[in-house]
Design a protein around this nucleic acid. Structure first.
Lengths: 209, 209
DNA sequence: TCCTAGAAGCAACAAAATCGCATTAAGGTG
DNA sequence: CACCTTAATGCGATTTTGTTGCTTCTAGGA
């Protein structure tokens, strides 16, 4: 059967959506996020304010949509030959992107204008997909791999917690440390019983500033 | 030369602040958060809207202030006789409070109107203080204790990540599992290099509750 | 080609946020 | 205690933003 006409993904609606999104991206760079207003975006995008209010509700939901787009990864993680190397590289890049001032702003925006948690769930899915790609490659190589959930709990969650709640305590070395702990936990788990109990070998906690 | 008349913590300002906070708490219960408006709060609190706009900027920052107040723990965690029991109980209560619909709403509000991250940092500090109380008691008992940072990374961060990004995948069993993994990690670390073992005064017995 | 319904435009209206200025009252000073 | 300074509030005019009913347009299907 042909696609249902529930929503209209193409034609004018799509053009309006793209124009508004592009305008938001441009204006955020020009006048800053705080100075943005719906009428301003509407005027620049060649649209009436009521269109934006009806489609997005308010400025926060619009910013949330734009932020999720920007948070979507553009490419698969690099293949460096081993699980450990891939995870290290991915975690470092993740921290670089997410902990940067614009990254933090996007994360905040994505969470804020998101009453039902849809956009937040999408962000989390992006990270999970990237991790799954790395893990699938490791499986191909015959390496033992941890579960995606473990990596989300041990690597992604601490990074995001710091970004949201403790600005400043975050760098590449910390990201590598998290990966080390997670991988060690997985190895211990493989060697021991198949529960999720974990016993990392090393854990040097050196809180910086 | 008068070094400190920077702000006015007492007198009318304090009364206004308390009145506005109380009004917000009352109105959130009556009409719901979404129906709240600054003029509505101002009228009920016996204050002019411009006062609120000048002191808090906008409704989001006001809600953030109120949310942080509500997120502050009222009492120290219960003393159940052992580190493991205390952590289990605390983590379960933490999940109960934070993952409940009102808890999620407060967390969102606290993060929402918080441009400089002050309120977010305060939330994180609350959890750290509670954990520190539990750890200090364990040290008194002579138990080996993990570092606060480890517990934040392994227990608090995954819980908050799920609350914010993956609504629904959260319960008491998961909280206990996180505590188990964190405590096991700490024990493995202590076995590897015994660094910070507090001088055990006397090993108290471990009552069941 | 015609039909239908979702989406956008338009304009009047309602509500909010902002700003200048007058007034009040904390907190320090002599 | 009287007085002074000034942050904080009150008040009203003004600007800006958000809402709503209705019309017009157009993508997608018959």
């Amino acid at each position: 059967m042909s696609p249902k006409p529930m929503v209209r993904p193409g034609g004018r609606s799509a053009r309006v959506q793209e124009s508004v999104h592009a305008t938001v991206r441009a204006l955020v760079g020009e006048v800053g996020r705080d100075a943005l207003t719906v009428p301003m975006v509407a005027a620049r995008a060649g649209v009436t304010p009521s269109t934006i209010y009806r489609r997005w509700g308010d400025l926060q939901e619009l910013l949330s949509d734009v932020a999720v787009e920007r948070l979507r990864p553009e490419a698969d993680p690099a293949d460096l030959g081993s699980l450990r190397a891939d995870l290290d590289a991915w975690a470092e890049q993740f921290v670089d992107e997410m902990a940067s001032p614009p990254g933090r702003a996007y994360i905040r925006d994505a969470l804020l204008g998101d009453p039902d948690g849809t956009n937040a769930g999408r962000c989390s899915a992006y990270a999970a997909e990237q991790i799954d790609v790395v893990l699938a490659r490791a499986v191909q190589r015959g390496e033992p791999v941890p579960e995606t959930e473990l990596l989300i709990d041990r690597v992604v969650a601490p990074i995001m917690y710091r970004i949201l709640f403790r600005p400043g305590r975050l760098d590449a070395a910390y990201a590598r440390e998290l990966v080390t702990n997670a991988v060690c936990a997985q190895q211990a788990e493989a060697g021991a019983h198949p529960t999720r109990a974990a016993a990392p070998r090393r854990s040097k906690k050196k809180p910086d500033n």
